[in-house]
Design a protein around this nucleic acid. Structure first.
Lengths: 254, 254
DNA sequence: AATTGATATCCCGTATCACGAGATAGGTAT
DNA sequence: ATACCTATCTCGTGATACGGGATATCAATT
């Protein structure tokens, strides 16, 4: 009876869902009032009030002049996730160095639940990127990760998530994805040519632990004008591989 | 009737508290099994099971081989808190530079609910520090923040939180704290002489926004052997003030 | 001053729903 | 074959989270 899929919409603890609905609304727009939160969540006024009171009491929400904000205590929990494997922490410095040295934006990406998650970033004026999720098949780092999977796993990914087109260049055909991943395995690095955003190219390589487990992917991206020819296919891939090796060495010998 | 203090222990939504009890247990020790979680939280097995199912469904917890981990999705929410004010993001790079240039550990600290919270750090082998909370009066950065408050606010802080002694050098006397804060206001920087940990000294300065609001405190710390004489009272304070000004300028002119 | 409108806070009866005990199933070691 | 771990599911019951509405508070408007 494992084929009972269908309505897994709202199983479980509904109160917990309400709590996170409020937290997510606060994350989206900071400094909301209670009535504004009732509007956005669709919950009743008193429900929002009680949940906020609880969250505030626990320190996960702070209130100032009637406006509510996500409290820093949530950082305490989520940072544990980010530092789960020491490798994730080791990648932090590497991303910074990579950004400094190349003058481009750099990221360290991992996969979770079939999506790419940014764990570290350098550059990008955009306010945040950390923790944000993107479709694996539209990023250089995402494709670098997919290339590490076996065919079954990739097929499952395609079946479950699909290949959404974000730009005209996004890969949407499963066969095309397969040949692309094969090419990535061949040359050891992945390239993203405006598959996630027009005018933006990227390069990425997989990062391994000393035990040869996949840790994540290290990548840089920037405007097409600077990402072409030798830079795109020689200089950056080489530099990325060096940095990926550095992480592995750091993990092995502290 | 605002003097009804006393049993504000477990008001509010108890289910939410259970949810976070589980999340906190997972944050403390990664990769716990359900039965292990029941032991640590004191909740019943089926309760833990249902909560975990809900959290996993929402993506806040991930499960691998029967072991449960905090999911990266929580980062998505808490990073919003960290980047609430653009100043917090601006401080990130400054902390890194400060650490590189001085070769010491550097932190950016803010106050929330009467405690010091680390928002950025450089150095420190210790696995994480981000989001962790410390008593204000035992840190250089904490005292730098306290020195910005008026006497009433400080008195309220002392009354509510007390002045716990963490080391022999910790300030425990309210009068001593007052004179210390006055001295900090005079010279513009705060010094911590083994008030938080034996063998550790620190220096910190307040960081202001272009509107002269207090953003947080910027500090460095390290072994007493390197933190003395001119370094402690000339070189580092000057450098810190420069960096704090840089943040302010960045905020004003992008 | 008086009125309006927006907010947060509180109360309470009701129905929901989260709860724990126990039963089942699946796996591993003895 | 037995014992002993796990995770998962079911179910009846009682706690409790729920929303409607009443009240309080404050600011702006008249």
């Amino acid at each position: 009876m494992e084929t009972d899929e269908g309505d897994e919409t709202d199983a479980g603890v509904s109160t917990t869902r309400k709590t996170f609905a409020i937290l997510e609304a606060l994350a989206e727009t900071d400094g909301l009032t209670i009535t504004e939160l009732t509007r956005r969540t669709g919950l009743s006024k008193s429900t929002v009030y009680r949940h906020l009171a609880t969250l505030t009491d626990m320190g996960y929400v702070v209130e100032r002049d009637g406006e509510h904000y996500i409290g820093f205590r949530l950082l305490e929990i989520s940072e544990q996730a980010r530092n789960r494997e020491t490798g994730y922490a080791a990648a932090k410095r590497t991303v910074f160095e990579l950004g400094q040295e190349t003058g481009e934006r750099a990221v360290f990406t991992v996969e979770e639940r079939g999506e790419a998650v940014y764990l570290h970033r350098y550059g990008s004026r955009s306010n945040t990127l950390i923790g944000e999720r993107r479709p694996l098949h539209t990023l250089a780092s995402g494709k670098a990760i997919l290339a590490e999977w076996d065919d079954d796993a990739v097929a499952r990914f395609v079946a479950e998530t699909g290949l959404e087109a974000i730009t005209d260049n996004s890969i949407t055909d499963p066969d095309e994805l397969r040949t692309e991943l094969e090419a990535i395995r061949e040359r050891g690095y992945a390239v993203n040519d405006q598959e996630h955003m027009d005018g933006l190219r990227g390069v990425a390589v997989p990062v391994y632990t000393p035990d040869d487990d996949l840790l994540g992917a290290l990548g840089v991206f920037g405007p097409t004008s600077r990402f072409k020819d030798e830079a795109l296919h020689e200089e950056l891939p080489t530099r990325l591989r060096d940095k990926a090796d550095e992480i592995r060495v750091t993990l092995a010998y502290g």
